[in-house]
Amino acid sequence: MPAMNMVQALNSAMDVMLGRDPDVVVFGEDVGYFGGVFRVTDGLQRKYGAQRVFDAPIAEGGILGIAVGMGAYGLRPVAEVQFADYIYPAMDQLVSAAARLRYRSAGEWWAPVTVRAPCGGGIFGGQTHSQSPEALFTHVCGLKTVIPSNPYDAKGLLISAIEDDDPVVFFEPKRLYQGPFDGHPERPAVSWAKHPLGAVPGEHYRVPIGAARVARAGADVTVLAYGTMVHVALAAAQETGVDAEVIDLRTLRPLDADAIAASVEKTGRCVIVHEATRTGGFGAELAAVVQERCFYSLEAPIERVTGWDTPYPHAFEWQYFPGPARVGRALRRATEG
């Protein structure tokens, strides 16, 4: 099985879908001839032609607007928003149109749009190239929100997203594009080639939307994480020696609440980790679900480890980033109680 990094795995997903389905088209800023600023669409225009993989004007609202229209026609558009931080001009098309079209027309029209957007920090991107805005989308009924943590899931989930008849917002943690980053920027970069989930089949396969994955089985505390923070949580468990069960949510909406409940009922403790800002973040929803489903199993308060409630600061990103030390302290607090 070929080793792929996350960029190659995502590219392979679109390659497979362009090859299988003539209704799949891929577009966005710089995605055509050049192949994307992160190279995720590299080579696709050469292989499938400019009619199917093309450059778009710098207007995220327009990109999503035409995507909705194309979806209404019957295509399966895959639109790239160059950075998740740039997605806000597209909010109206995503929220009022893509997410609501099936409902408002009682199933007459729908928009099977996939929106890909690199998210998260750790590349000195400052406040406009580092954000994790997933909670803004999980709040929107009619949208699905997906965040993979490894190449194997990235490919399988992106194929599922493109094949899905509902609109999917697909966030790609850009710090994971080249390797399983565990939150230690001072250490040498690790490659996906040595990671079991860097082994990615070349052909078509799906990872289902709405199913979490146990990234590490454990008995003492459940860690709920997604994207980059899955690897940070794994590092924290190893560094503290706490026997944590790390759940990689993979999909935030629909949420695999059964997997969460099964784990927390077993461990009786829960730490929630995300890179996004804290207040109103997806961790708040997770904490609510855990207390609704598992209140009588809880033996300690639920912990949240998140980005601070500030914009992402350029010079202080490692003080901002909720790294293994902060997660480790939360694991200790949760298990000592």
Binding site: G65, I66, G69, Y73, A106
Partner: peptide
């Protein structure tokens, strides 16, 4: 705010203007 796929009449939006770029996308498709 009607919708009629059979009449080729796209679902009406209360948020104004959204249908313009959608029509362009439909036409591109």
């Amino acid at each position: 705010l009607y919708s009629s796929r059979a009449a080729g009449f796209f679902s009406l939006s209360g948020n104004l203007g959204t249908q313009l770029s959608q029509a362009v996308g439909w036409a591109m498709a």
